[in-house]
Nucleic acid binder design. Structure first.
Lengths: 199, 199
DNA sequence: ACGCTAACTGAACAAGCGTTCAAATGAAAT
DNA sequence: ATTTCATTTGAACGCTTGTTCAGTTAGCGT
């Protein structure tokens, strides 16, 4: 047999992205074969090449989509645009946690599989990442300018805060001791303290 | 030819560890072949099996050695054992940075390749890691008990601080803007602030 | 009912994988 | 000088890899 009954291109494309995301996160890009992904999708390996040029492009598209989603979600965030640096920082922390926590696999891949990108693809992702970091950096700078925050080095503080927040993904479990709301408050407190903000 | 002139077991063993560390860090465990490692060592692939049972054991040994070194270095740290929680935390921060920064590859592998360990091997490494985390946790607990520090949640603060410190490895470069001494002071300040310590 | 095209199979390709092992050779001890 | 043993080669094993492609079928517009 060839074409399968009930087959549909968009559905398969979506299944491919999902299967690849899950498998790459669990076993790593290099350790996952196209045949493994195909099995998960319920299709032969050859069929995948109707939806991606090659394995490398598949990885890149996943990472790029993730970064695009992240940046776009920030632009469209529900919270009304805040005015004071304090409000902005609070908004950023809450946003970061709520965006990243439900996307464990994507976040994991985005950090772990950078080295498996070709140099050109790497540069694209890196640019998006820097864009995101600059959002936080601008907030911290503003706050420092008007005396809300105090840092020895603002650039380092940016990295440190993002690393701290993203580290949440490595240990948080839905069934665990703490609710999403609680970790949000805990990290908010840690970040505000680190920023030297009096509350 | 068979045995090579000037050949020496211990030297080859060391070269194997170094080549494997560098290659695993750069390309990932799954993406690196035994033949690639062998080429780096300057030997045929078959010869590597005199020094490791198999590829999995090679990875495990590297990670395990790294964790052992870390825990032992803490025990033998040069700084005289401090008394106040404040001193202890300062000591820990400085130790963490000075131990981790010069070991970029090992640290990277230790975080990235955990998933490529067999479950039993993973458990061993995880135990060592928890041991290290508990060092910081104990310091934070003590400090909270005597009022030096203030946390909403001490366990979370432990994870957050370690993530923050380890994140340093992802951006620090020797040729960069900041010296080792400077980042040490910057991170010390961030950690102390996050801990709510008045200085 | 027919033709077109989107969707997929299944086999094939060359290349590379981890691992084993008999054979060969250098170094060290006698 | 001879033996012994550590060290390495090089070929071989069966298997998997990413990717291509001619052929086959399902769904859809006419």
């Amino acid at each position: 047999m060839a074409r399968k009954s009930g087959s549909n291109g968009e559905k398969t494309a979506k299944q491919l992205r999902e299967a690849a995301t899950a498998l790459f996160a669990k076993n790593g890009y290099a350790a996952v074969s196209m045949r493994q992904i195909a099995r998960e999708v319920g299709v032969q390996a050859g069929a995948l090449y109707l939806y991606t040029a090659d394995k490398q492009t598949l990885l890149f598209d996943l990472l790029d989509q993730h970064m695009q989603d992240l940046l776009q979600a920030w632009e469209e965030r529900a919270t009304p645009h805040s005015v004071t640096p304090m409000d902005k920082l609070e908004c950023f922390v809450r946003f970061h946690i709520r965006f990243h926590l439900p996307r464990g696999d994507e976040v994991f891949i985005s950090y772990m599989e950078l080295r498996n990108l070709t140099p050109e693809n790497f540069e694209v992702i890196q640019t998006s990442r820097r864009k995101y970091e600059s959002i936080l950096h601008d907030i911290l700078s503003d706050g420092e300018a008007d005396g809300t925050f105090k840092f020895v080095d603002t650039k380092v503080a940016t990295f440190a805060i993002i690393a701290m927040l993203t580290g949440l993904n490595t240990w948080y479990r839905d069934e665990g001791r703490l609710s999403l709301d609680m970790v949000e408050e805990i990290y908010l407190d840690l970040v505000m303290s680190a920023a030297g903000a009096k509350r």
